[in-house]
Simulated scan of single mutants.
Amino acid sequence: MDTFAARGYNNAPLQEIADRAGLTQAGVLHYFRTKAQLLTSVLELRDQSDIEQLGPDRPQGLAFLHHLVDTAHRNAEREGIVRLYAVLSAESVTDDHPAQVYFRDRYTGLRAFVADALREATGLPEDDDRIAHAANALIAVMDGLQVQWLLSPDAVDMATSTELVLNSLLATLTPDRSSTAK
């Protein structure tokens, strides 16, 4: 995880990964047939740890939106994981990157979860296009804040900024209500 986070996929030497794991390159390839499979496993491990934080049931509506703010707060304690995600998600847009399908699918699922939570929190109908746009915006803000935080951690509070944007989106989507994420 640390090697992929520091160097990206293409520049992460398998020998360095093996050394960090206390294995030979052949030992690493015994457990993971290819470097690409190792990368996918690392990303799945990251997701699994986040899913375990949710417990047996995924929160709904405002509770899920609160979870996003909590995740931003927790990410400030996990620089390596944040760096891994930021580097590999950006790198995955290149041709034939082994994590491209993973990130495409992850964003598709995340957009659906966030859109469902916004719809549940606001009571807006499924055909209101603003929900999808708001979900895209919230995810983009969170990803962008991670990059800014990695470059200047003392200048960026990811949780506070995420909560501000979330509250603004909720207020924009439901101006007649006083319900916000706080």
Rank of each mutant, 00 (worst) to 15 (best):
A26H: 08
G27T: 08
R33H: 11
K35M: 09
L38V: 03
L39N: 06
T40Y: 04
V42K: 01
L45K: 05
R46E: 02
R46S: 03
R46H: 08
D47R: 14
Q48I: 01
Q48P: 00
S49Y: 06
S49K: 12
E52H: 09
Q53T: 12
G55D: 07
G55P: 01
P59E: 03
P59T: 08
P59S: 08
G61T: 02
A63S: 12
F64V: 03
H67K: 01
R74G: 04
N75Y: 09
R78M: 11
E79D: 07
G80F: 00
G80I: 10
V82R: 10
L84R: 05
Y85P: 00
V87D: 01
V87Q: 14
L88I: 11
A90T: 12
E91Q: 07
E91D: 13
S92K: 09
V93Q: 11
D95K: 09
D95L: 13
D95R: 13
H97I: 07
P98F: 09
Y102P: 03
Y102E: 01
Y102W: 13
F103V: 05
Y107E: 04
T108S: 12
T108Y: 05
G109I: 07
L110A: 14
L118Q: 07
E120S: 08
A121K: 03
T122H: 03
P125T: 13
P125G: 06
P125W: 02
D129K: 06
R130V: 10
R130Y: 06
R130W: 05
A132G: 10
H133V: 12
A134D: 09
A135Y: 04
A135L: 04
N136T: 12
A137C: 09
L138T: 03
L138H: 07
L138N: 03
L138I: 12
I139M: 06
